[in-house]
Design a protein around this nucleic acid. Structure first.
Ligand SMILES: [Zn+2]
Ligand SMILES: [Zn+2]
Ligand SMILES: [Zn+2]
Ligand SMILES: [Zn+2]
Lengths: 144, 144
DNA sequence: TTTTGTTCTGGAAATCATTCTCAGAATGGA
DNA sequence: TCCATTCTGAGAATGATTTCCAGAACAAAA
């Protein structure tokens, strides 16, 4: 499981001529252990061996290699999580007040129907479809 | 139509103790005339009478009053459009390359089913549901 | 219409997340 | 080992957005 993750990471980085260094490995471990998307300050705080500028650079590398995904919200910091194909397709519940992000999934039938409708919409506008992002905004239990 | 827009804007700003000044009126006109969400540099270029710092301040005021909506993407600049209740509920197709944003809508049935599923998901996580944002990413015709 | 207290304006300065720089370190192959 | 490439991290630079603040516009009352 974890080995597979690292093996895949190595392969995907190689594909874009990049190395799977120890700093990047730590990043992947931290993201894999998190149960919700993390901001860069959070990541640096979780592992003090990481230098902020390197974290920025390396998360960009991981994103480019298809290992991590950047989530941009209205909050001040972007958030990162492991790419969906290391877990499962899911969506985000974003708290309007504190910025907390929780994951959730849609019933398979709904997701399927949605995906089909989105493909149709993209084609109609002449876009080459890539993926979709569905965020739900609301107020989290703690902020109510 | 247009009058109604301004009347509603006035009312909503009043509700938060703000005035519907000429600068804000120009902003609303520009947004109403645009057929896709605009960045602040685009807005300032469309009407040279607008001062950048005031546009930032006033778009924040319009957003707080529920007149405009801010759309944040991975692009450098945020984009703004009139609030959905001045038009119709819709979603965004974002070009990965150039950042262009087009609007699209889902078939009513899909949208309805999606909305019901989202409400259920929010409740399950203990969130008070607000709204959802659904973006489709892809490559626009010009960037292909 | 004056007066008065509030909100707004816009240019410039400040903030701050993110990106860039660059000299040295690590890496991987020849 | 040697060479070429990639990586690192501390600090500088960048650039979108926010904040300041002194004067203007405004609304309501007098
Ligand atoms: Zn919250
Ligand atoms: Zn989905
Ligand atoms: Zn494009
Ligand atoms: Zn919708």
């Amino acid at each position: 499981m974890r080995d597979d993750l690292h093996a895949t990471a190595t392969r995907r980085l190689r594909r874009v001529s990049q190395r799977y260094t120890s700093g990047r490995r730590v990043l992947v471990e931290v993201l894999a252990a998190a149960e919700h998307p993390l901001t860069i300050p959070e990541i640096v705080e979780l592992d003090a061996s990481l230098a902020t500028s390197s974290v920025y650079r390396n998360l960009a590398a991981l994103e480019q290699a298809g290992i991590a995904t950047k989530i941009v919200t209205s909050q001040e910091h972007a958030r990162y999580e492991l790419s969906e194909d290391f877990g499962h397709h899911h969506h985000h519940l974003v708290c309007i007040d504190c910025g907390r992000v929780s994951d959730f999934t849609l019933p398979a039938g709904v997701e399927q129907e949605l995906d089909a409708a989105l493909r149709r919409a993209a084609r109609k506008e002449g876009y080459v479809h890539d993926t979709h992002r569905l965020d739900l905004t609301g107020t989290c239990p703690e902020c109510q």
